[in-house]
């Protein structure tokens, strides 16, 4: 596999966007996907189970110290930052909010860029805050591939716009086109 992991940052409008994207990914999709969705501090895991039902892949909450495996989608738990260690395991922290957010997209992306360098794909989807802008820039600096949802197709255009303005992304695409591109990249050896 050319790419070893995909990180996704998404905020308002995220539930629909993820449903669309994950329902397009086939059962044999190998690259692990790690998601930060901004979500209320007291939300339980119900929406993750819902997403799991809509997806061909296993969608689960990321556990601390859990080893990242192929073919799985991991979601950051509410009220914790999610980080990736160099040994490709997860860490959770309760540090200060970053960009008013915990979990924060920047925190995930910056640690993932360190762990995976140029074997990482960073994706920013719909959202109404600038979290993820620094993170996606960092992914690019470390040689990773960056994809931003076309703001015109996003429920909330602010987050993709902010990410595009700060770093020249490799692709700006609709959700369906992102899924197609990921499937193509997943097949590359």
């Amino acid at each position: 596999m050319r790419f070893e992991a995909i990180v996704v940052g998404v905020s308002s409008g995220g539930m629909n966007a993820m449903k669309v994207m994950f329902s397009h990914l086939p059962k044999d999709f190998k690259t692990p996907v790690i998601v930060v969705q901004h979500i209320g501090a007291h939300t339980d895991g119900h929406w993750i189970r819902l997403l799991n039902d809509k997806s061909n892949l296993t969608v689960k909450e990321a556990d601390e110290k859990e080893r990242i495996e192929s073919g799985k989608v991991y979601i950051a738990p509410a009220n914790y930052h999610l980080l990736i260690e160099k040994d490709k395991t997860f860490s959770l922290t309760i540090g200060e909010r970053v960009n008013y957010s915990r979990p924060s997209i920047d925190v995930l992306f910056e640690s993932a860029a360190e762990a995976y360098s140029n074997k990482l794909i960073g994706i920013i989807l719909t959202g109404s805050n600038h979290d993820g802008t620094k993170g996606v820039k960092r992914v690019k600096e470390c040689g990773g591939l960056t994809i931003i949802q076309n703001p015109e197709t996003a429920e909330s255009a602010y987050m993709p716009k902010s990410a595009i303005a700060a770093s020249k992304p490799d692709h700006v695409l609709s959700l369906e086109a992102i899924a197609e591109l990921l499937i193509e990249l997943d097949k590359q050896i």
Partner: peptide, 8 residues
């Protein structure tokens, strides 16, 4: 400690 956390 968690390396990713300390690094940050």
């Amino acid at each position: 400690y968690s390396e990713a956390h300390i690094r940050r």
